[in-house]
Amino acid sequence: MTVHAMAAAQAAEEGWHAPGVADFWQPLIGDGNWAITRPAIVFALTAIILGIVLVAATRKLKLVPGKGQFLLESGYDFIRNGIGRDVIGSKEFLKFVPLLFTMFTLILVNNLVGVIPPVQFPTMSRIGFPIALMLVVYVSYHAVAVRRKGGLGYLKSLMPPGVPGWISPLVYVLELATYFVTRPFTLALRLFANMFAGHMLILVLVLGGEYLLLHTDGLLPVTGVVAFVFSIVMMFFELLIQVLQAYVFTLLTATYLADAVSNEH
């Protein structure tokens, strides 16, 4: 259900009913935990379309790139050099570029469809999708660290150098929690919370503005117009947040991988 469809449904009801978490659960086939939902279909379609576009764009590369190839190469160079090489280092970064580029493009496209009709639903506002991406990153940086340092060596490397002996047990427990709990939790939660909160705010402005404009008297319809105008402003602001969140997720992924291949803590 798009924002406009929800506004129409809201108009058919009496009184004002604020949007809630239930509006983000939109099963299309089946019900319960195994239902095929609208965000699941959107995510699958964006992944397929993105794959087709990337394959088609790279199949016949030209020495003098056209607009499409130039745009693709600019994005790739930004991830490769601006994040991969700068964060991980020139010796180790290249093998991680496919993961970083995939994460960035997949998150960015799924975020952008959250404000583009007729979808207007950010898939990352469903916590399962950020968790799935987080698990890929989580397994990757731990696997890289164990392969590089060995299992015991990796666990030993979690202790920062120079910590006094009397406080080292507490510091080590905190480091374990950081690497195995806090990092993955915040990585997924940050993306989910920003996408959920931004779309919820737009919903409140659009549905509230529609109700004030069409179902109230006096000067209240004027506030409905203000709400609509502000919702448009927020959509442009949301576009900025969506790009930023894709960048932050990819940057943190590169940071964790850099830590995994580093010989220091």
Rank of each mutant, 00 (worst) to 15 (best):
F43M: 11
A7E: 09
V173W: 08
R126Y: 06
T253Q: 07
A18T: 12
L99T: 09
V53N: 03
L252E: 09
T102H: 08
F228T: 05
G165R: 12
N110K: 03
P39E: 08
H142L: 14
A12D: 13
I202C: 03
V53F: 14
T123R: 04
V222F: 13
E210Q: 11
Q242E: 07
L63D: 14
V64A: 13
L212D: 05
T216R: 06
L213H: 03
I127Q: 06
A258V: 00
H265R: 15
I83G: 02
L205C: 06
V229E: 01
G153P: 09
G15Y: 12
N110A: 04
A8W: 07
T46N: 05
V137W: 02
I107C: 04
L214S: 14
M103N: 08
A44W: 11
I131A: 07
I241P: 00
F249T: 02
E14Y: 09
L100D: 02
R190H: 11
F192D: 01
F228L: 15
P27M: 13
Q242R: 14
L133P: 01
T186F: 15
F93N: 02
L108N: 00
M1K: 12
L63R: 15
V136M: 14
Q10L: 12
P184Q: 07
A246F: 00
S231N: 09
D23L: 08
G128A: 07
A177T: 12
P184G: 04
T216W: 06
